[in-house]
Design a protein around this nucleic acid. Structure first.
Lengths: 341, 341
DNA sequence: TTGAAAGCGGTACCAA
DNA sequence: TTGGTACCGCTTTCAA
């Protein structure tokens, strides 16, 4: 069927070994022979069979990316960034979505492990690191993105989430909010860290941290819109009610804004809202949403670059590296109140 | 390193052939042996090396998906739908994004072909089918999604685009619009077909088809927001200006709405707008956007199912099959005018 | 500088 | 029912 090295070798009257070496620029092949080989490769549009190469070398030239939800722009941007880097090096990306289901994630990872991927890049939907330990046992290269586990040292690429929390909360305070609520998930590291940053910001401005103003939910990050809507409704029943809300991601913020709008209150005059993630359409929403940008594509790029340094042996799994992106505040109308400071 | 069939065979005092057969439920292995083998496989958490299997069988158990833009929800939903189907059958999906660049697409496809994927699912960014002919030459299984080429018979899964054009235009007419413009790309099949549906609808309602009301651009579908914004601005300078606009996709509609808003006109009272694709956030936009839904996930699912019937030999490349989804109108505020009929 | 041989981990064929 | 052998296409080692 397809052209093989053997065909090239026969055509040229050399051995397959020579072809193999010439193709990969080994320096023990004469320039003349190499030229002839490369020439013939071009003519026949020969491409090495990667399954065979993989079997022989033990490398698959594939990387895996598992994300909780490919439709959420955060993760598709990560995928985009990673693709761009891999493409240049002749690697391909197997992408799987866990749909935020821990069991499905394990299943997808098993599938991938059967293919002996060179690196596994995972934004994990697990609640704990247990199922990830087999990467360590089997000495597989693992890179976590977005979410990490405190008791599980591994390479990690993400954003400085505490800084996000501080930044968003500082912004609300600066815009005159004093009763600042927080809505989001609770079981994943970005949520926990952002919450911590939120508290930190309140405290350092001398504002009280009120438990009733913090609405976190297990799994609150999926279906963020529903979480945001319901949580906001409960917050609106409080007295005094919040005059600013920090939502741990943009879908949550969209849900919260919907609840505020339906209650007849105005954004940002009555309640200011800020999200996180800076989805591409944030500026086109009913009220353009202030958000904290995470440079998702760079997260993907950096994860892919780190992946290569693992493949090339420049980094080892023994010394996990952490790469944090700097978040960036993107103020829009949803927090556009006159400062009262 | 990893467990192999040989390990299992040695442990059990049988041959690798027996293990191989037992694992794949060949019926010439005694129940007793099979049970022992499966037992041991479980114990050792053995997984067959897919590169080796691929080399031996000539199949890769991989499918490829190439889309122009993974961040656009349409394509990520297609990917999601396809994943769901493949997962169940032990297949994995290699996903690549062409970034709407024909050359990059060719490069990505070459990469994939080196891996001998079992099926290639492509939403092509090519302007013509030339570069796709090698699939035919090399007898590779190809399925086009979303975009097709009139002179190139191939399996195709998409939406009834003419119907979309009719449906959207009918809706505008029904809502009282009489000066209906159309904005979008021009070089890809969905754009052309939707435009045809648009014209058809106008004609069958006795309305004139005005060339100055049709603004199509080469490559207008990428950066649809820019296309929509600029095209709408040019339409606004016309006299009489349109009182309704059919945008060939949602990003274009968002750009158009922005232009209308900036000009001080109201949506939908002065100009009604309808898009296509029904992005998940359509209802959360400044003016909730009416759109035509394409059931993107089902496109992905159907493409994957068709892929399997190709792998299993139930369909051949010689008799291309076309699967068209029925579009569905989703009216929202952007066309919410009182009917004048 | 070149190439013969062995092996990567499976599967298919056919004989035992 | 079981297994020996050849082979898939490539890389590595080592001898020529």
């Amino acid at each position: 069927m397809a052209v093989t090295m053997k065909d090239i070798a026969n055509d040229l009257g050399v051995s397959v070994v020579t072809v193999s070496k010439a193709m990969r620029n080994h320096n023990d092949i004469s320039l003349k022979t190499r030229t002839r080989v490369l020439q013939r490769i071009k003519e026949l549009d020969y491409r090495p069979n990667l399954a065979a190469r993989s079997l022989a070398t033990g490398k698959s030239y594939l990387m895996g990316l598992v994300v909780p939800d490919l439709v959420y722009p955060f993760f598709s941007l990560v995928a985009k960034g990673a693709s761009r880097v891999l493409r240049k090096k002749g690697y391909s990306l197997i992408i799987a979505s866990s749909e935020e289901d821990p069991d499905l994630e394990i299943q997808e990872l098993s599938q991938m492990m059967a293919r002996n991927l060179d690196v596994y890049i995972v934004a994990s939907a697990q609640t704990g690191p247990e199922s990830l330990r087999r990467f360590v046992e089997q000495k597989k290269s693992l890179i976590l993105v977005d979410r990490r586990f405190s008791s599980f040292p591994a390479h990690y690429v993400g954003t400085d989430d505490k800084e996000i929390g501080r930044m968003a909360t500082d912004h609300l305070i600066e815009r005159g909010c004093r009763q600042i609520a927080c809505i989001g998930g609770r079981d994943v590291s970005p949520a926990m860290d952002r919450l911590e940053g939120y508290k930190h910001a309140l405290i350092s401005h001398g504002l009280p941290v009120l438990e009733q103003f913090i609405v976190t939910r297990v799994n609150g990050d999926n279906h963020g819109d529903v979480t945001g809507f319901e949580a906001m409704n409960s917050l609106l029943r409080l007295s005094p009610r919040p005059d600013g809300v920090f939502c741990l991601n943009d879908p949550t913020a969209m849900g919260a804004m919907k609840a505020i709008a339906e209650s007849g209150l105005r954004i940002p005059q009555d309640i200011a809202v800020i999200g996180c993630g800076n989805v591409p359409y944030a500026s086109e929403l009913r009220v353009p949403l202030s958000s904290v940008d995470q440079d998702c594509e760079m997260i993907g790029e950096n994860a892919a670059k780190l992946a290569f340094s693992l493949v090339e042996g420049k980094q080892s799994m023994a010394f996990p590296k952490t790469i944090l992106m700097k978040p960036k505040l993107i103020p829009r109308n949803s927090t556009n109140r006159i400062s009262q400071e």
